Computed example of a mutant assay.
Amino acid sequence: MLRPLFPGVTQLRLDASALRVLDLTPLHSWPGLRVLVTGLPGQRLIGAQELGDRLDAPPG
């Protein structure tokens, strides 16, 4: 859904400190997108495992 709006984006940084849980599944189909999530522990990220090494989520 977002990919057509931002075709040149290859990196995404999300500050999730105001959230309890973050769903990353909409980003699974965005090839080559690298995602950095700050402010939220990895166990509270839905769909994190499917992003594999494209996701960096330091302990929040």
Rank of each mutant, 00 (worst) to 15 (best):
R54V: 04
L19P: 08
V35P: 05
G39E: 07
P26G: 01
L14E: 01
R13D: 06
P26C: 01
D15Y: 00
V21D: 00
P31V: 00
L22D: 01
L12R: 14
L36T: 13
F6M: 13
L27C: 12
R34S: 14
R20E: 02
Q11R: 15
R34V: 12
Q43A: 09
L40A: 06
G39A: 11
W30V: 08
G47I: 05
R44C: 08
L22P: 01
P41D: 11
V37E: 03
L33M: 02
P4W: 13
G32A: 05
Q43V: 06
A18R: 15
T10R: 15
L12A: 15
V21K: 08
V35Q: 09
L12T: 13
P7R: 12
A16K: 06
G52Y: 00
P7C: 10
D23A: 09
L12N: 14
W30C: 09
L14A: 08
D15H: 02
L22H: 03
A18G: 15
G32R: 06
Q11A: 15
T38C: 06
Q43H: 13
G39P: 10
L14C: 05
V21E: 06
R20D: 07
G32H: 07
G47Q: 04
L19Y: 14
P41L: 03
P7D: 09
P7A: 11
S17G: 10
A48N: 02
L45Q: 01
L19D: 13
L19T: 12
R54Q: 05
S17D: 02
P41C: 06
R13C: 07
L14T: 02
L33D: 01
W30R: 12
T25E: 04
T10S: 15
I46A: 13
P4S: 11
D15N: 03
V21P: 01
I46P: 03
H28D: 08
A48H: 07
G42N: 01
D23S: 09
G39C: 11
R13H: 12
S17L: 03
G52I: 00
A48V: 04
Q43R: 12
G32Y: 05
W30K: 13
P7L: 11
L33A: 05
D53E: 13
V37H: 04
L45M: 01
A16L: 10
R54L: 08
L40H: 07
G32D: 04
L45F: 02
I46D: 08
A18H: 14
R34N: 13
L22R: 01
Q49D: 12
A16G: 14
L12K: 14
D53F: 06
L24A: 02
Q11S: 15
Q11V: 13
V21I: 10
T10A: 15
G8L: 03
E50D: 11
L22N: 00
A18D: 14
L22S: 02
R13M: 07
F6I: 08
G47E: 05
R20N: 04
P31Q: 00
L33R: 01
L40D: 05
G32W: 06
L51R: 04
S29H: 14
I46S: 10
G8F: 02
L40R: 04
E50G: 12
S17H: 09
L12G: 15
L33H: 04
V21C: 05
S17I: 01
L27V: 11
L51I: 03
P7T: 09
G42I: 01
G47W: 06
A16V: 04
R34Y: 14
